[in-house]
Design a binder for these strands. Structure first.
Lengths: 207, 207, 207, 207
DNA sequence: CACTAATCGAGACGGTACGTCGAGTCTTTCA
DNA sequence: TGAAAGACTCGACGTACCGTCTCGATTAGTG
């Protein structure tokens, strides 16, 4: 989020409502216009706020959109459907549902694109989005271990590498399927991906 | 590429050199400036060409960059290293090498981002990039079948679905690892991904 | 008019029809668009001629329009209505009629405006328009002298100065009235101007 | 001048200095480049102002130049030299002096030329230039009447017609002489014109 | 009759300016 | 002193014409 000067006791305090209004307006504008046609002046107008106010709180378009988009992915939840396979399948479909929303598609890819040249932005994305959602993989594995579907981990660094791999494969495959290949992420495809993953992991564990 | 009125016998013909100069200038500008700061006026200047010439041939920034980026991926080749595992690993590392180049990173993600709101652009990407590189997966499987590493396919539609799945998983995972997670795509990681894939496929085939 | 390289005996001769078509198209375009929105490309299209053909014959917009406008004023004629007063009045009204046509208004003023910075153009206007119409004043005086309304001239240089003065006053006043003051040049006004002139000349002659 | 939304209390007020700088820059550019090569971008640069600021205040080239040129003619003054003849001669020579300046020649004729197709512009010229300078004729007659050189007027509408006629004749003749005939407006010529006018008026009054 | 050289149409070329738009900053007045 | 309003500078946009150029295809005269 944005920071503010620490010790400003005096003066008119910043409107708390403004922040929410601006982020909501940003998402609404993303839906209607997409990233490239979204203008900060327009966001300010929609939010009933002066452009100055907006610039006082965010450094620019990228930062604003990261914040507006990040919380979209917070609604992802591990369904706990009783089996690891069903858990994965559920998350995949949830993720696809979110990516079906135009503000999520446009916003996510736009900030990722910008981050290819802006390290600070990339770090912001890692914090706000990537690492935040990695919890799903960790939690899924924990549950599967509790159910006895997966063996308990032994090597912690090997374990972290596996989490990263799984996350990149799931998130990458879903995004690529949905946005680049432009094919539907439906139950059939989700099941295929799940099967591939589980079989791959099981075989690896068997080694 | 851009198309032109089909049978225009008369008039001064378009300069063939201009096309190449423009695409090269586009890639150079992408390296230096990145997508968002790249201007068509600047590209025209670098190419030693008038802005009008550029607009006569491409509809806009997106179309131009797709064409400029697409051929970057044409240098991908299946190494034929004797085993399916080595083939996959080789392609993954080649892909990562290309994505390490700034013009490829910025350009690819930028056009994908724009394509989330522009169906024509998405189709152009599918034609120029996605489907063109899917050949690698098909060829890899053919070779593996020839070697006996994979069984011959029986159901052709099932076969096409598998190609798509593999492609989305490999391309998606590499892109996500490189650009979103921002972790290195090195030999270790490539081997892990390859192992996951091969084990998954083998187990699926065993069913 | 335009000139051509003197000794070109061989080769395809220039189309005579093209010249007329171009001048007519120029006048038509002046009516519809006015000077500033008239483009040579459009004139060429209207004339069914390539831009190259047009540029081969005229140096630019100004030269073309001078030629196109000049002949509009050739239809001015001294009515010979039996008295000097009626002659003047007739010419004034004829002049006003021509100036009521949009191509004459726009074209004449546009080239005059351009000529304020282009001596060659000013000279061309003098030759093609101003001096050509000065004949009307000379002829009117000759007739009036024949009728005994004006005394025969004695000093030829004084005589030339008077012709110039009369011409500037008549042409200037009519143009100013019609185009700058934007008031109608009707019979009443024409009579007032004529009276002013004749009285002024008579009193001067009486000295 | 340009107008603005009437009661806008809030917001940053328009810079008063910018107006003057823009008009001065316009006149300077007219001197150097003339009407047709004058570009609004260049004017903005000279004035140290952004192009948008210029467009916010004037609708286009024509409107801007009318305003810039109009005040050039405000320096015209009736000399009050003791006789009507000397007054007229003085004004004629003053007018010629102004028309000798390139920005006045180019600017005046250019806007008049444009006004032949643009009624709003013509009206603007009438207000800003024509009617404003007609005061000179009115004042000259008033003084002459006070001196007894001219009889007091009886019919007011007849009187207005005479003012218009005199104005068209003087202004038209001077402009025509200076810009179309391209002959010098010197004392000799000024005296001839004055004599013609005064004799004509005197004879008319004698009727 | 073929040759030849300048013409013709068409339209792409390198330029220049257009008028608009958005970014981000600055300067007011109001609360 | 924060917030709204809106003018400010800056720079890119995509378009329109400019005047030039390169084409292939016509035309006369000339040889």
């Amino acid at each position: 989020m944005q920071s503010r000067s620490p010790a400003s006791r005096t003066g008119r305090p910043r409107s708390a409502a403004a922040d929410a209004a601006i982020l909501a307006a940003t998402r609404a504008a993303l839906v209607e216009l997409g990233w490239s046609k979204l203008t900060l002046g327009d966001v300010a107008t929609r939010a009933g706020v002066a452009k100055t106010t907006l610039y006082r709180r965010w450094a620019g378009k990228n930062e604003l959109v990261v914040d507006a988009v990040a919380e979209l992915f917070d609604e992802l939840e591990l369904p706990d459907s009783g089996s690891l396979a069903a858990d994965i399948e559920g998350v995949v479909l949830q993720f696809a549902t979110i990516l079906a929303r135009p503000e999520a598609r446009s916003g996510l890819m736009a900030v990722v694109a910008e981050s290819t040249r802006d390290d600070a932005l990339r770090e912001r994305i890692r914090e706000s989005i990537v690492n935040r959602q990695k919890r799903l993989v960790v939690e899924g594995r924990t549950r599967a271990q509790a159910r006895g579907e997966l063996p308990p981990e032994t090597d912690p660094s090997e374990s972290a590498r596996t989490v990263d791999l799984i996350f990149d494969v799931i998130a990458g495959a879903v995004v690529h399927r949905a946005l680049v290949s432009a094919e539907p992420v439906d139950a059939t495809w989700a099941w295929s991906l799940t099967a591939l993953l589980l079989n791959g992991l099981a075989a690896a564990a068997a080694v």
